[in-house]
Simulated assay, not measured.
Amino acid sequence: MIVVVGQFRFPAARMEQARPVMRQVIEATRAEQCCVQYNYGEDVLDPGLIRVSEFWQSREHLDAHMQTAHMVQWQRERAELGLSGREILVFEADQGVPL
């Protein structure tokens, strides 16, 4: 299992424009066969800060995801929206257990 966690930021004034774009990439990614989970969440206390969490079946699937048309489009659109502060980490993990 591959776990991806991190964050990025949009200017708070651009969030209304960013939400539908984020929704498109989330929906397209969740439809990928080997995507286990793919989530963006707005930080309640820090407007414009987006938290990322993803789970993939393998690193190869994550790498393939990064080459999809919707990710290429997302990279272009997020730059146009003023994305900054992107900090994303990738981890290898077991299946996990409930807390």
Rank of each mutant, 00 (worst) to 15 (best):
L45P: 00
M71P: 02
Q24Y: 05
V97S: 08
V44H: 12
I2W: 02
Q75F: 10
A31W: 14
L83A: 11
D63G: 00
E80N: 14
A18L: 13
Q24G: 06
E42G: 10
A93I: 08
N39L: 14
T68G: 06
H61S: 09
V72N: 08
R23F: 03
W74K: 04
A12V: 14
Y40P: 01
S53Y: 10
M1T: 03
T29P: 14
A13Q: 03
G6F: 08
P47G: 11
G48A: 15
V44I: 11
N39V: 10
V44F: 07
C34D: 15
A18K: 04
V3H: 04
V3D: 00
E42V: 02
A69Q: 03
D94G: 15
N39Q: 15
A64S: 12
N39K: 09
Q75D: 09
G85A: 09
W74R: 13
Q73I: 12
S84T: 15
D46C: 11
D43T: 01
T68S: 13
R59V: 01
E60I: 00
W56R: 00
R23Y: 14
C34K: 07
Q7K: 04
Q73V: 08
M22P: 00
M15T: 09
L62A: 01
E92R: 07
Y40F: 15
G41W: 05
Q33M: 13
Q73G: 01
V21H: 02
Q17D: 06
D46L: 08
S53T: 12
C35Y: 03
M66W: 07
R14P: 01
A93Q: 11
Q33L: 11
E54W: 06
D43G: 07
Q67I: 08
V3F: 07
I2G: 06
V21R: 02
E27W: 02
E87C: 06
T29V: 08
D43H: 01
A28P: 01
M1S: 08
A13P: 12
M15D: 02
L99K: 06
R14I: 06
Q33P: 01
E77G: 01
E16D: 15
M66P: 00
D63Y: 00
D94L: 12
A93F: 06
R59F: 07
Q17Y: 00
D46S: 10
R76G: 05
G85V: 09
G6D: 04
R30K: 11
P20H: 08
V36C: 11
G6Q: 02
E92C: 08
P98T: 03
H70W: 12
E80M: 12
V90S: 12
R9E: 14
T29Y: 05
V44Q: 05
E77H: 13
R59D: 04
V72G: 10
H70R: 06
A13L: 14
R14N: 15
V90G: 00
E60K: 02
P11W: 08
P98N: 09
Y38T: 09
R78E: 10
P47N: 06
E27Y: 03
C35K: 10
E54M: 12
R86P: 05
W56M: 03
P20F: 07
V97D: 04
R23C: 12
V52D: 13
Q17T: 03
G85N: 11
V4P: 00
Y40T: 05
P11E: 10
R51K: 14
P47T: 04
M71D: 12
P47Y: 04
E42I: 04
R19S: 15
W74P: 01
R30D: 00
M71R: 13
